[in-house]
Every structure is written in C-alpha cells, then in structure tokens.
Amino acid sequence: MILRPAGSADAPALARLGRDSFVAKFGDMYRPQDLSTFLEEAYSEAAIAAELANPQRLYHLAERDGALVGYCKLGLVCGFPEHARGKHVLELKQLYTAPGQTGGGIGKALMDWAMAEFAARGADEVQLSVWSGNEGAQRFYARYGFAKVADVTFRVGEQLDEEFLFARLI
C-alpha cells in the first residue's frame, strides 16, 4: 500500500470512491432524491475539485496496485466550535475505504497518518462526527482514544441523521 497526498488530478477517482463508499454503507437509508442531491453536492467531480483547492482541507490517499482504495480528509479548522475544549481544534472530516476493502489495514494506515498530521500542526484536540448507528466506526475511533462528547446531526438532502461527535484531547 502506498500513502500519498492528493492533487487536483485525483478529483475524478476521489469522487468515484466517495460516492461508491457512501452508497455502499449508507445508500439504503435515504429516499432516492435525498441521496441524489447529497451525492451531487458532496461527491461530484466539481465538488471534490473545490475541496482539494480549499486551503482548509487536506486529503491523503491510500493506493494498492495503482488503484485508489481509501482516503482521509482533514479539516484544518474546528468543525464544531460550540463543543471545543482545546484552543487549536482540528477535525477528521472523512476516512473512507473502497467497498469491500474494510479490515485490510487501510483505515489504520490513514488514521495513523492523520493523528501524526494533527500533532505536527499543533492540534490540542481532534473532533469527528460518526453516524449513531455505525458501531464499527465508533469502536475503531475509540481505539485511538476518541469518545463521544455530544449529539450532532448530518444532513443528506432533506433527511437529518443522528450523529455522535467524538473528540480526543492530544
């Protein structure tokens, strides 16, 4: 597996992986119109290109045999300031693996990179949101010292999902 920073040329592959991963894990939770609206807003090539150009975002990719198998997106500003306990709070925005690739060490490699990046940038707290029903992800983040600090929501089209805000002081 190769880990590397993302560049603008990665937008099509990131858009495809983001869509495929989201639909595989959560697609059946939404009405078709809500899902379609969300996917266009969040995972169109244009949306991903804009995210890659945003100086407050940082993407890192995982590749195997030349194929994108996962990615991690960091927010370099506090995503939930009303729940911040630290002075320099950063956010783990996404950690996705390709469908069928969970459990192969991709998430661990990306998470290890993310935690090192947060430390290098002087973060004293890291936040992330996770769907309330995604117990596997919650266990994964708990292994890194994250714990629930608040209830939050996440919008997909017109649907509001119940999420948990997890955080860890560094």
Rank of each mutant, 00 (worst) to 15 (best):
R4P: 06
P5L: 14
G7S: 15
L14A: 00
L14P: 02
R16P: 00
D20I: 00
D20R: 09
S21G: 07
F22Y: 08
V23F: 05
A24Q: 05
F26I: 06
M29F: 11
Y30F: 15
Q33D: 15
D34I: 10
S36E: 15
T37N: 10
A46H: 03
A49S: 08
A50I: 02
A50G: 11
L52R: 07
N54R: 05
E63D: 13
L68D: 04
Y71A: 03
Y71G: 06
G75I: 04
L76D: 04
V77A: 13
G79E: 06
G79A: 11
V89L: 02
E91N: 06
L92Y: 02
Q94N: 14
Q94V: 07
Q94S: 14
Q94R: 15
Y96N: 08
A98H: 04
Q101S: 06
L110H: 10
L110V: 11
M115S: 02
A116R: 10
E117R: 13
A120D: 14
A120P: 01
D124L: 09
E125G: 10
V126N: 00
Q127S: 07
N134S: 01
N134Y: 07
E135Q: 12
E135A: 13
Q138K: 14
Q138I: 13
Q138S: 11
Y144W: 12
A150V: 07
D151A: 13
D151F: 00
V152P: 09
T153G: 09
F154K: 06
R155G: 01
V156E: 08
V156D: 07
E158R: 15
E162S: 15
F166T: 06
R168T: 00
